[in-house]
Design a protein around this nucleic acid. Sequence first.
DNA 1: GAGTGGTCTAGACCACTAG
DNA 2: TAGTGGTCTAGACCACTCA
Lengths: 230, 230
Amino acid sequence: MTAPLYARTEAALRDRLAAGAWKPGAALPTETTLAAELGVSQGTLRRALAALERARLIERRQGVGTFVAEATSERALFHFFRVERPDGTRPVPTSRVLALRRRAATGEERAALEGTDRVIAIERERLVDGRPAILERVALPEALFPGFALPVGVELRDELYVLYQRGFGLTVARAEEVLTAAPPPRGAGWLKGAPALAISRVARDVQGRAVEWRRSWLDTRRLRYRVTLD
Amino acid sequence: MTAPLYARTEAALRDRLAAGAWKPGAALPTETTLAAELGVSQGTLRRALAALERARLIERRQGVGTFVAEATSERALFHFFRVERPDGTRPVPTSRVLALRRRAATGEERAALEGTDRVIAIERERLVDGRPAILERVALPEALFPGFALPVGVELRDELYVLYQRGFGLTVARAEEVLTAAPPPRGAGWLKGAPALAISRVARDVQGRAVEWRRSWLDTRRLRYRVTLD
DNA sequence: GAGTGGTCTAGACCACTAG
DNA sequence: TAGTGGTCTAGACCACTCA
């Protein structure tokens, strides 16, 4: 009936992490103290910690300690940007915001973001090797991102997910993507009418809450999408 | 220097599974006997078995035993066919082989299949809701599939990966896919010139050997590709 | 009821890091 | 050298399946 102790221990830790009991990058208590605090054996605690490490919520370093995982550009790019050049190398894109405004959510956005009424809508170009290769529309629930702002028209080496965590305590832990081939969208003259790879994403935080919706159009002559199934 | 015991235990079991020490669907020895046989404690063995279960090489059922995973249609479809209808439901496709012949490998095939000289080339249509929706070209290393044959022109509810395992002892455990948007290929009139989602896949067996290369063209008006990143 | 895998514990020892 | 996480073991007990 009740879940096993290691699962309840993992859930308890997950809640405390989500609640911000420890800041990203900070160390958790040691195994022995944390086990005592939670009233479980060290072995049971270790099983819970191992699961959290697989989910990339924490990082463990032998001889040093256990730390809350931080959203870094590298991590965001590696895990959530599954794009490569035709030769298989992975680019590090820059980006330029074309527009940012607050407005009512479209039906699609409301469905993806689970009932959000108002969104912050961002349109940006992402540049690979200095030239635009991706057009992207991002929608954020306004309630979760109070005061969110971005400089418009400037070329940035940003990663949005780093900003989400640092500015609003929202850690993106999982994303679902749906891909189709699409005619080139309006507003991307550089696509020159070539078909684009359209990617729709819902990003979720540690507890599964939908935090961001985006749709990207990729210039498939210059970029491909790679995924491993196992 | 040397890998930890649980890792070596896992590797040993993986080798024995790949060598066919136990047939797909058969039961492995119990934990206690297997632990004794390998000269490790039950705890260490359990850690190795848990890893193999996560990799879906074995299945464990409490009160019953531990079994070598079988390639079933359901498993093949669920893990390796990441396609859905626009409404989000997952179709169960049928297929019709258009051609099957043996020939020299193209450069692309040789690269993907790691030096294979001759391949069995299959071209087939896959039908969703009774109508063609996917054109697919499959290349198999001839050396690994002696005598491989398929009925041509007949509509089948097949799953190739089930045939690979049952007929040739080759279990597909992992696949890498690269997606692009592509102009419609020759030979798929039903696409009517609409852009297609092109999917290239290398499938690998338990030990990482490339076992199959395929390229599929999806009618993106009727099908989408879904993937979860975490 | 016999036998299987699943959970949980306690503790010894090792490997690594940092002051 | 003190303190951390990593490995490995032994054993008790639970939960489930099936004859």
